[in-house]
Amino acid sequence: MINRNTTDGRLYARKFRIWGLFLLLGLAVFFILHIALGQVVLSPREVVLALLNNHDETYHRQIVWELRLPRTLIALAAGAMLGLAGAILQSVTRNPLAEPGLLGVSAGSVLMLVLYMTYLGGSASLSLQVPLFGLAGGILTVSAIYLLGWSRRGDALQFTVIGLLISAFLSACTSLVLLRHSEAIGSILLWTVGSLNGRVWLHWNIIWPWFLIMVPIGLMSAGAANALQLGDGVARGIGVPVRLSRAGLLLIAALLTAGAVSIVGAIGFIGLIGPHIARRIVGQDARRLFPFSALVTAWLLVGSDILSQGLSIPLFDGGRPASLPVGAVTAFMGAPFFIYLARRQMK
């Protein structure tokens, strides 16, 4: 008799290969489309020629290389980091509703960024100090949640509730800072919503080292995540240091989230949707779930930014039009998705 788990594993492995190829092809299409759209619409052929540095397309080459390519690369990197962080948090807490925004990591990073730009004279246009402050906020937040949630052998539910409470408290603190400094609300508010507007090579040069370091580390943590999904007792029985593994995974998720938030702001729900779609396709095994979550979420963020560029709103400084922040688009998608998941969990 064929073992059901073995059969399911082979099925998920086959789906991983097929859907992985499909996602890579889809990302290639979205990559070209994302670069092509803007105030000056380019054809796919013009985009490809510009990317290849065709000398007959000097104007198009300047648009693509100086303005649009860094934004597209940042969307791919930030999406992958947030998707992987969400998958790690869901595995560690064994809670399908967990994601960086709900567990306070994003709120902690944003609060530190707002404090830095408001009280220390930091620039919203970014320097090396900005992501460092965002990173510090994420690490401090996840450290506080871990100490409060598991210092007395608390369970995953307790950890999630504490994360929600801390996230709400940090968001309230951010709102108070914005109210006291209303003159700076235009430049700061985009960090609280999440936006890819105005992202250039400076931002890419900050995010890519974190991406190259933290994403492989996150993918290599799949074995520990699989053990924790079995439960603390089973994990200890097979020789896994539960508390150390959980702390390490939480730190990896915090670093991934803080790295992305420090560049694109608190883009909500994207780290919830991507891992759930990935889990439906490739199953619970973190060895497949983690890379697939990164791919799906990168695909979703690029697609959401394509949609956001078709919608414009007046900015606070003078009312000039600008594309809708991508965080608003993901919130419109994520809120109904979250309600659906919550109702499903209640049933």
Results as ranks from 00 to 15, higher is better:
I32M: 03
Q158R: 15
G122C: 03
Y59F: 14
L157P: 07
L42W: 03
Q39V: 04
S151F: 11
A80L: 08
L115N: 08
Y119L: 10
T93N: 08
N53E: 15
G83E: 00
V110C: 04
L49V: 11
R152Y: 09
R45F: 13
L52H: 12
Y116A: 09
L49I: 10
I35P: 06
W150D: 06
A75N: 06
R61K: 09
R152L: 14
Q62N: 14
I32Q: 04
A168C: 09
Q62V: 13
L128I: 12
L49F: 11
A80Q: 03
L128H: 12
A98T: 07
V177E: 10
F30N: 14
G163F: 02
S125G: 11
V48H: 10
L170P: 08
P100N: 02
S123L: 07
G122F: 00
T72H: 07
S106M: 05
V114P: 04
F31R: 07
T160P: 07
L33M: 10
S127Y: 04
T160G: 10
F30S: 15
A98M: 03
P131S: 00
L170H: 02
F159G: 15
L102Q: 06
P131N: 02
I166M: 11
P44W: 01
V130M: 12
P96A: 02
T174C: 03
L42Q: 03
T93S: 12
L126H: 13
N53H: 13
G79P: 05
A78R: 01
L82Q: 00
L67A: 04
S125D: 15
S123C: 07
V48N: 08
A78L: 00
L52R: 10
S151N: 15
E46F: 04
H34R: 10
N95E: 01
V64I: 06
F133M: 14
L128P: 04
A50R: 05
D56A: 15
S175D: 15
G138K: 00
L89Q: 05
L103T: 08
R71K: 02
L67E: 07
G101F: 00
A36F: 02
A172L: 06
G122Y: 00
Y59W: 13
G163T: 06
G86A: 02
T93I: 10
Q158C: 08
Y116W: 12
L113T: 05
V130P: 08
V40Y: 09
E66K: 10
L67P: 07
S123R: 08
L103F: 10
G134L: 01
S91I: 05
E66Q: 14
I74F: 01
A107W: 08
L82T: 02
Q158I: 15
L37M: 09
C173G: 15
T93A: 12
S151Q: 15
P131R: 01
S143A: 13
V161W: 08
R153C: 09
S143K: 08
N54W: 11
I32N: 05
E57D: 12
V48C: 11
L51A: 04
H60A: 13
L126M: 14
L49A: 10
F31I: 03
G38N: 03
S167Q: 06
G83V: 01
G134T: 00
G137R: 01
V130F: 12
F133H: 05
Y146P: 06
V105I: 14
F159N: 13
S106V: 01
R45L: 13
L49M: 11
A50D: 03
N95G: 04
Y146A: 12
V130D: 13
L73T: 06
L176C: 15
L69E: 02
Q129P: 13
